[in-house]
Structures are given as structure tokens and as C-alpha cells.
């Protein structure tokens, strides 16, 4: 049970990192990004390949994962410069699928659907599996803490103020004298870097990655996490990630304690319970668990 709980907390850390990354792109800047799992996958593959094929040290691999995803994010921001809303959603969703299908088919590089195994993990093999999990728990949540502090500072700065303005009304931000595209490119790059870093950490925890692990469902979970936590608030992203993991995992047990239902019905009950909780949350707390607040006060 302990091992299970720790593994879930590690995954909550990955979710929190992804929600933080998405929060810069979507929460602050208002650019819909349904392709976040694509950036996550890029980071995972970049680090996995560099450490297994070129034997880079792990920290360098993680950094490379973030850099590769960041570069893709910058290019993406330029491509979608004039798109908004639904169209942005379509293009970014397409991007993630392109990444997944490329990983499935470029077998010479990615080993296709068989995936890459034997990805090194810190002290894996030197310590017992429970100890490894604990070490990784520390690494992931340290990363969450560092990213959170950096992004919270960004968010509550003049830079964050401009991003919020772009989210609400691009024309006004431009007339306010702000080069909108340059801000969007930077926001997308930063967010994608965090997503890529999260992917790299995930690869080395799991020791194995395959295209199946980067399906669009993961994107939906993170969007839900951010919506539940509170769009725009960095604390909300973390709370939302914990909330979604708790929801996903607790409903596993919920269906087990209800007697007289078949396994198929249990699975349906679980999904129903998840959907119901989110609908209730959004009905009674549409601003999310942690609403976005501003810290700029004229009269403190």
C-alpha cells in the first residue's frame, strides 16, 4: 500500500509539472494547447535516446528533454501565431498525434511501438525498489517546487501582467505597446520546456517508454487538473493535479466496495464518478479550487 501511495505521489508530481507548464501557455496567455502530451513525449524521447544511445549523464538528458521541447514550443508558437481558440486546439492536438505516430513509425530511432526500455534511473539497482521510489519522489517534487517558485515569480511580474492582458484581449495588449507575438513565443517556449522536463523525468522513472504512453487522454487529464485547480493560478495547477490523481485512483476503490455489480459496470461507475465530481466542481466552483488572484495593490 505504501509503495502504491508513493508511486501515485510520483505520478502526481509529473501531473503537477505538466499542469504548471500548461498554465503558462493556456492559463496565463490563453493559448489553447491540446498538444501538451506531444511536448511531454518529446522530452521523454530526447532524454531516453540521449542517455541510452549516446550515454549522456541523466541530468544532461533531462535538460536536453526540456530544451528540445522548448525549441518545438517556440516553433509551434510562430506557426500558430494567428490562430485562436478552436483552430489552435486542432493544430496542437494534431501536433501531439504527429509526435506519437512518428515515434511509432521511425523504428530506426525510437524502436517503434516496442518502445525504449532500460532507461537508466538514479541509483536504480543500487538501492531497493521502494528506496528508488522514495528517491524519485524527492527528485520530482523538488522539481515541482523549483518550477513553481520560478513560474509564480513570472506570473506576478510585469511579464505575467502582459500575458494576462494578451489572454483577455490581444488588440488591447498590442495598443498598450506590447509586442504580442514575442510574448506568446516566450510563454509557449517556457511552458513547453516544463512539459518536456516532466516527460524526461517520467521516462527515467518508468525505465520504459512507448508511443502508447503518450495518448491524448493524458492531455485531457492535465486540462482537467488545471480547470479544477483554477486556471491562471500556479498553486491551482498543483492542487488540481493532486485532485485529479486522487479522483482517478480513489474511484478504483470506490467501485470495489459497491456490491453486486459486474466488472464492466464497475469500470463505467468509476468513469461516471470522475465525470460527476468534475461537473459538480465546475458547477459550484467555476473559478476552480484556487481562483486566480492578483497581488498588485494600490493600497496594501
Amino acid at each position: 500500500m505504501d509503495a502504491y501511495l508513493i508511486a501515485m505521489l510520483v505520478f502526481a508530481g509529473f501531473y503537477a509539472l505538466m499542469a504548471l507548464g500548461l498554465n503558462v501557455i493556456w492559463g496565463l496567455t490563453g493559448m489553447v494547447n491540446l498538444g501538451l502530451v506531444g511536448f511531454f513525449a518529446l522530452g521523454a524521447y530526447a532524454s531516453a535516446l540521449l542517455t541510452t544511445k549516446l550515454f549522456w549523464p541523466m541530468p544532461l538528458g533531462w535538460a536536453a528533454g526540456a530544451v528540445v521541447a522548448a525549441a518545438a514550443g517556440a516553433v509551434m508558437a510562430l506557426i500558430v501565431a494567428r490562430l485562436r481558440g478552436d483552430y489552435l486546439a486542432i493544430v496542437t492536438l494534431g501536433f501531439a498525434e504527429v509526435i506519437r505516430l512518428t515515434a511509432s513509425n521511425e523504428i530506426w530511432l525510437t524502436n517503434g511501438t516496442d518502445g525504449i526500455s532500460g532507461i537508466p534511473g538514479p541509483w536504480r539497482g543500487d538501492v531497493s525498489p521502494p528506496e528508488f521510489n522514495l528517491i524519485y519522489l524527492g527528485i520530482v517534487w523538488t522539481a515541482v517546487a523549483v518550477v513553481f517558485v520560478l513560474l509564480a515569480r513570472l506570473s506576478h511580474s510585469p511579464f505575467g501582467r502582459v500575458l494576462r492582458a494578451i489572454r483577455e484581449d490581444e488588440d488591447v495588449a498590442a495598443v498598450a505597446g506590447k509586442p504580442v507575438l514575442w510574448f506568446k513565443v516566450r510563454a509557449f517556449t517556457i511552458g513547453a520546456a516544463v512539459l518536456g522536463g516532466a516527460g524526461a523525468l517520467y521516462a527515467h522513472y518508468n525505465a520504459y517508454i512507448a508511443p502508447d504512453g503518450f495518448a491524448p487522454l493524458l492531455t485531457i487529464y492535465i486540462v482537467l487538473a488545471l480547470t479544477a485547480g483554477g486556471v491562471g493560478a500556479m498553486r491551482g495547477a498543483i492542487i488540481g493535479a493532486l485532485f485529479v490523481i486522487a479522483l482517478l485512483e480513489s474511484t478504483r476503490f470506490l467501485s470495489a466496495i459497491i456490491p453486486g455489480v459486474s466488472p464492466v459496470q464497475k469500470a463505467a461507475l468509476r468513469e461516471g464518478a470522475i465525470a460527476l465530481s468534475l461537473i459538480l466542481l465546475l458547477r459550484f466552483r467555476p473559478q476552480g479550487l484556487i481562483p486566480e488572484k492578483t497581488r498588485t495593490k494600490a493600497f496594501p
Binding site: R164, A165, E292, K297
Partner: peptide, 9 residues
């Protein structure tokens, strides 16, 4: 076209 969710300041 005020930015609605920002304060006046």
C-alpha cells in the same frame, strides 16, 4: 475594452 480580470491599477 478594459482587461476585465485585471484591476484598474
Amino acid at each position: 475594452r478594459g482587461i476585465p480580470r485585471l484591476t484598474v491599477l
